[in-house]
């Protein structure tokens, strides 16, 4: 029980997710909107595990989501012939998604984590694009034709269950992943990993001199962030969108969205990605409804203003404002 106060900051995060879930469940027409918002929150939260803590900007982050999507897709399309596996195919899909995104992150980590700053950002873009062209060029996993597997899902689970998976359970899983990512974030913040990474973010060389094994902790955070992305890809993309085409799962705009969400909410904070994801998702949704076609024109300058005037993000600002008050403990 002594541990509990340490994890108190999770309360507002979970509360937000529970409220979202309740709204979606009980209010007509809210489900698909919530599912989009949850995707953005989960994306931001998973991205934040590495970027927020280390300050390293992984521009190729979407590749890990892509790997997760492929993991699930491969499991479904290749194992559909083994009928006795049944729903285990989905479980295997999750495992494969984790394994594939972890493997890729280890490979990328070994190469790119030696680099810093802009060099790291560019190297990770290179990995993302290079990997996509390898899949298309060498015709791996059906190359550019990709895979479409609604029919396979129907065979495995039956039509009703497959439909429920696509439109309901996949969203629940995204919610779980978002909550998982938040828990992991706080766990790291409260343990050695977090202290080491904070030191690293402030001054990597000084941290090294102090005897902190910088590389080890960087890799831990990197792999965690990547495997969460893999899970997210397996659910929000593969299960919710039963197809995979290489240009779509390596679309660099998703990385940018993750950056925007983290930045809006406050990079390196626990609550930031939730706030960022909600603000970003909601404003895009209502702009597309009330001003169809002008979302980006409005969004781009707003982001510029935010970067210049509020570089700490919304939660960063709240944190500074609530310092010394009772709320302080909840906003991390």
């Amino acid at each position: 029980m002594k541990q509990l106060p340490k994890y108190l900051p999770l309360a507002p995060v979970f509360a937000a997710y529970v409220v979202m879930f309740l709204i979606a469940e009980n209010m007509e027409g809210m489900w698909q909107l919530m599912s989009m918002l949850l995707f953005y929150c989960a994306l931001g939260q998973a991205f934040n595990v590495f970027m927020g803590m280390t300050g390293y900007v992984d521009f190729g982050y979407v590749a890990f989501l892509g790997m997760g999507t492929y993991g699930m897709a491969l499991s479904i399309t290749r194992l559909v012939q083994y009928e006795f596996l049944g729903v285990w195919i989905i479980v295997i899909g999750f495992a494969l998604a984790m394994v594939m995104s972890t493997l890729l992150s280890m490979a990328v980590g070994a190469v790119a984590l030696r680099l810093r700053g802009a060099y790291f950002a560019i190297a990770t873009i290179g990995v993302n694009e290079g990997f996509r062209f390898l899949i298309e060029g060498a015709r791996i996993w059906n190359g550019s034709e990709g895979m479409i597997f609604t029919a396979d899902l129907n065979t495995i689970l039956g039509r009703e269950a497959a439909a429920a998976l696509c439109t309901y359970w996949a969203d629940i899983m995204v919610l779980v992943i978002a909550a998982l990512a938040a828990s992991v974030t706080l766990f790291y913040m409260r343990t050695k990993v977090g202290y080491a990474l904070t030191a690293l973010r402030e001054d990597e060389d000084a941290a090294k001199v102090m005897g902190i094994n910088v590389t080890k902790f960087k890799i831990i955070a990197f792999i965690t962030s990547a495997s969460l992305a893999g899970l997210l890809g397996a659910t929000a993309w593969a299960l919710k969108t039963p197809y995979v085409f290489p240009p779509e799962v390596f679309e660099i705009h998703y990385t940018i969205e993750a950056i925007i969400i983290a930045m809006l909410g406050g990079a390196g904070t626990l609550l930031g990605p939730v706030v960022g994801g909600l603000v970003y998702g909601l404003s895009k949704y209502y702009l597309s409804i009330f001003l169809p076609g002008f979302q980006l024109l409005i969004f781009a300058p707003v982001i510029l203003v935010i970067i210049v005037l509020f570089p700490e993000g919304i939660v960063g600002m709240l944190k500074a404002r609530t310092k010394g008050t009772g709320v302080e403990r909840f906003i991390v």
């Binding site: 007509e28 027409g29 698909q32 599912s35 597309s288 979302q295 980006l296």
Partner: peptide, 22 residues
């Protein structure tokens, strides 16, 4: 009744959900 999906899949499902239910 139409909305702009920005040619992006996240928006497609949320907007179709809205069209059908709201």
């Amino acid at each position: 009744k139409y909305y702009d999906c920005e040619s992006k899949k996240e928006a497609v499902t949320s907007l179709i959900g809205r069209l059908i239910t709201v």
